[in-house]
């Protein structure tokens, strides 16, 4: 329940995101920077990416990422520079490591188990299952229901 769901309390001013002044002149670099920013979490506003947030810290990190890219860093290295400071927590896409295997593979494992169970259930249902209700049985059902009243 979420009321106030869409209660963006932490967004002091909602017109957020990248400021024109931050942008890099090279469109290719800028688009890489946007891509990286979209997957970095803004720490102050918790569930927004720094690309969406207008918080001061998000601005600083956006600038940091752009500086790294200008300095010739790869996307991974630029992301790494932020992770070195703030930890895995800033990654909106959790890194793949043993601690996150259940997270990443859980859905697939569940699907397989679920599909297996469904198939088993389809195969091994009691063979002597009653046929669907015919008219007489429906009547009987109705009578039973009436008795309940």
């Amino acid at each position: 329940m979420r009321p106030l769901i869409l209660l963006f309390l932490l967004l002091a001013s909602p017109v957020g995101a990248v400021e024109p002044a931050e942008r890099l002149a090279d469109p290719a670099l800028e688009s890489r920077a946007r891509g990286i920013s979209a997957e970095l979490r803004c720490l102050v506003c918790q569930n927004e990416s720094i690309d969406e947030s207008h918080a001061d810290l998000a601005h600083d990190i956006r600038v940091l990422v752009r500086e790294r890219l200008l300095a010739g860093d790869s996307d991974t290295a630029a992301t790494g520079a932020v992770v070195a400071r703030y930890g895995d927590f800033v990654l909106l896409r959790p890194p793949m490591k043993p601690a996150t295997w259940p997270l990443w593979f859980g859905p697939l494992a569940l699907l397989i188990v679920g599909a297996g169970c469904s198939l088993l259930w389809l195969r091994h249902r009691p063979q002597a299952a009653p046929a669907p209700l015919d008219d007489a049985e429906r009547k009987a059902l109705e009578t039973l229901l009436r008795e309940d009243m």
Binding site: E39, R41, G87, D88, F89, L91, L92, R93, P94, L103
Partner: peptide, 10 residues
Amino acid sequence: GPKLSVGFPF
């Protein structure tokens, strides 16, 4: 364990 974020990319 470590503190994680799970966002739209996941």
